[in-house]
Nucleic acid binder design. Structure first.
Length: 377
DNA sequence: CAGAACCGTGTAGCTTCTGT
DNA sequence: ACAGAAGCTACACGGTTCTG
């Protein structure tokens, strides 16, 4: 027995054509359906022909197919790819500004699939998964060896760099550069964890904690570095250095909405144009965080090793705790690296092999211990 | 002998966007 | 407003080998 739901998708004209009664327009669709269901009831050939004629109308959509076969989306996609599921056609839809398509399946062929077949497919797939994992393990081993070698040769290079620093400069200079070097990497891991925490679903707090640890170490280090004879501290103030929180009162909020609708103003633009009134209004809340976006700029360099310069940017609210007020420092008008690297960059994938987080932390701690020995001893 | 390091695969949960 | 399509990505997990 054919479910009557299917007929909803088939037009009356198509049903008439199926019965060879094209001209019999007066027949009600309801009666047509009854006639066809009875006809199909005991006629296997006609029954099959019905499904073939209306395969597009009766096509199975992805979600329905997943229910019928009780399989996952991943399984459906895989079986479609492998040509195991009979596809009637691909239908298009728009998304991401692109035209994408999805398959619809042949209802007749799908209902012929037995649970045994499905189980066989699953077993076959499991076999191939386990095979490819064996190959993967071999590949993983080769990659691991390669990476281990890279780390080893870096350790060698690093040793040579250190030797040259200690030979050419004073122990104080070498210790300062060593700490500065690893502070750069600590700072990059801080940024990396910051980005990860913002993307993370489950480990948000873990990444935030790591970010904090790295930034704390960085701040501790730049403070120490700034006291050395190789440090130059200056100050950078952007065009709008203050962070401004605004909460309009009801009246000004209405006024702002007018400006937004008519002139396309955003909150700040509206505030800039109406500062006098907003500041005078005692129901509006305006909170100004002075110099929030300003940065202390620390440069570590020496005549002795003139080809190396380290630079660090520290937000005003942090540097303000231990450095002199901005007015007493030389100002930088603007500096290079104005793009995404302006506030430090994350660790690049290829760098994560040699500069793993745990290695960087270890080397940083070594460097800071050594640094303190030279400066306090 | 547990754990680290690595790669491949599956999946949950999110986004984007259209047709109804 | 909402269902439902694929895309995207972080994460879980499994297998193999080496290491401390």
């Amino acid at each position: 027995m054919i479910s009557t739901i299917y007929f909803n998708f088939i037009t009356k004209d198509r049903l008439l054509a199926f019965l060879g009664k094209d001209d019999d327009k007066k027949l009600k669709k309801h009666d047509l359906i009854n006639e066809i269901t009875t006809l199909l009831c005991d006629n296997e050939i006609l029954y099959k022909k019905f499904f073939n004629t209306f395969k597009k109308e009766l096509a199975v959509f992805p979600t329905e197919l997943e229910k019928i076969l009780s399989c996952t989306t991943t399984e459906r996609k895989r079986w479609t790819e492998e040509g195991k599921l009979s596809v009637v056609e691909y239908r298009q839809f728009k998304k991401y500004g692109k035209v994408l398509s999805h398959p619809v399946y042949n209802r007749w062929d799908i209902q012929l699939l037995s649970p045994d077949t499905i189980e066989r497919w699953r077993a076959e797939h499991q076999k191939s998964v386990s095979d490819s994992r064996k190959t993967a393990a071999k590949k993983a081993l080769r990659t691991k060896t390669k990476h281990d070698n890279l780390r080893q040769s870096f350790a060698q290079e690093w040793k040579e760099i250190l030797v040259s620093w200690y030979c050419k400069g004073s122990p104080e200079l070498a210790a300062t550069f060593e700490l500065a070097y690893w502070t750069v990497w600590i700072s990059r891991w801080a940024k990396e964890n910051n980005l990860k925490s913002r993307r993370a679903i489950k480990y948000t707090t873990e990444y935030q904690e790591k970010e904090q640890i790295c930034y704390t170490l960085k701040n501790k280090s730049v403070k120490l570095l700034s006291k050395t004879p190789f440090a130059k501290l200056s100050f950078y103030m952007p065009d709008s250095p203050d962070k401004i929180y605004i909460s309009f009162c009801d009246k000004h909020f209405e006024d702002f909405k007018d400006f937004r609708n008519n002139l396309g103003f955003n909150k700040m633009e509206y505030y800039d144009n109406n500062k006098k009134y907003i500041n005078k209004c005692n129901k509006c809340i305006v909170d100004i965080d002075k110099n929030y976006y300003s940065l202390y700029y620390l440069e570590v360099s020496s005549e002795t090793l003139s080809d190396i310069t380290f630079s660090f940017h520290t937000p005003f609210p942090i540097g303000n705790e231990f450095w002199p007020p901005p007015k007493s420092l030389p100002a930088i008008e603007h500096y290079e690296n104005d793009g995404i690297f302006r506030f430090g960059r994350p660790v690049l994938d290829e760098e994560k092999i040699v500069y793993r987080e745990k290695d960087v932390l270890k080397r940083f701690n070594n460097a800071i211990t050594k640094f303190l020995l030279y400066y306090q001893g």
